[in-house]
């Protein structure tokens, strides 16, 4: 009997819970990280410069909230890519990869679905973590904005998972001990202009950034931090961009994984 998507997700919810239970510190550190990042940037910036300069450069009304939200986005992107790209590696390391490949369904489905619960969990956690900050600055409106950003983050997760599966396929084929494509996360984030306007990047890089989902997520965060009420039309534009990327990335990912699965089975590096 083939495993249904529900089976895979249920199994994965359970293993995520078990894992969190045994790694409580990780759980709590997820809550602290966005604040640490914000603290780092604010501290560095304010020792030498001023918040005023930052506000003017980025053209936003609430820089602290913006940095906080960006940190949340950085954290959740990092975790999503990490969870997906590393999960295949973990499975190989623990010797469970063969069993994963034996699950009576498409490997692609397993790899995509398996990390979904922890991806949702980590992005929700990152956003929840900054909720107190948002409420502190803007009250209920801040919470509402955050919710909007969270929705966009969820949407942004879909193409990101596809992208991560592509990375995972690569790592499997190259059989390294660690995730050798971990540079992709900071690269994507760098190009998305998380803490600065992307106009400071060279034009070629600005062009490249369009193909990465985080750009649109960051822009959505920027929109919500810029205006009291974000422009719906601008948001819709970003959302459609994300949907298109989802289709492209996941399509490519399923092809890439098929190829790497064949190569892995051929070379026997399971």
């Amino acid at each position: 009997m083939p495993s249904t998507s529900i089976d895979i997700i249920r199994a994965s919810v359970f293993s995520t819970y078990a894992w969190l239970k045994n790694n409580k510190w990780l759980f709590f550190s997820m809550l602290i990280w966005p604040y640490l990042m914000t603290f780092l940037i604010l501290a560095l910036g304010m020792v030498y410069g001023s918040l005023e300069t930052y506000r003017e450069r980025l053209g936003i009304s609430n820089p602290v909230l913006y940095i906080l939200a960006s940190s949340g986005i950085v954290m959740s992107s990092l975790m999503i890519v990490d969870v997906v790209a590393t999960s295949a590696l973990y499975h190989r390391w623990l010797g469970t990869l063969p069993y994963l490949l034996l699950t009576p369904t498409k490997t692609y489905k397993v790899l995509i679905l398996e990390p979904v619960p922890s991806a949702i969990l980590s992005s929700t956690m990152s956003m929840l973590a900054i909720l107190p900050g948002a409420v502190f600055f803007e009250g209920l409106l801040g919470a509402g904005k955050l919710f909007l950003i969270l929705l966009v983050v969820y949407l942004g997760m879909l193409p990101l998972i596809g992208l991560s599966v592509i990375i995972a396929s690569l790592t499997l084929v190259l059989r390294e001990e660690t995730n050798i494509a971990s540079f992709l996360t900071p690269l994507i984030l760098l190009l998305s202009g998380v803490f600065y306007p992307i106009q400071v990047l060279p034009t070629i890089l600005q062009g490249m950034s369009r193909i990465f989902p985080t750009l649109y997520v960051v822009q959505a965060a920027k929109l919500t931090a810029t205006y009291t009420i974000p422009e719906i039309k601008a948001l819709l534009g970003l959302i459609s961009a994300l949907i298109i990327l989802t289709l492209i990335y996941n399509g490519t990912a399923s092809l890439a994984l098929g190829t790497s699965e064949r190569m892995v089975k051929k070379s026997g590096v399971i």
Binding site: L51, I67, L174, V194
Partner: peptide, 27 residues
């Protein structure tokens, strides 16, 4: 582990650049 080695160098540089660019916006 040369791929990991190169990847680690690259990762380090990229993260550093992100934070430095962020901090520079204040100055």
């Amino acid at each position: 582990y040369k791929f990991s080695f190169l990847n680690n160098i690259l990762t380090t540089i990229l993260w550093l650049t992100i934070f430095v660019l962020g901090a520079l916006m204040f100055i």
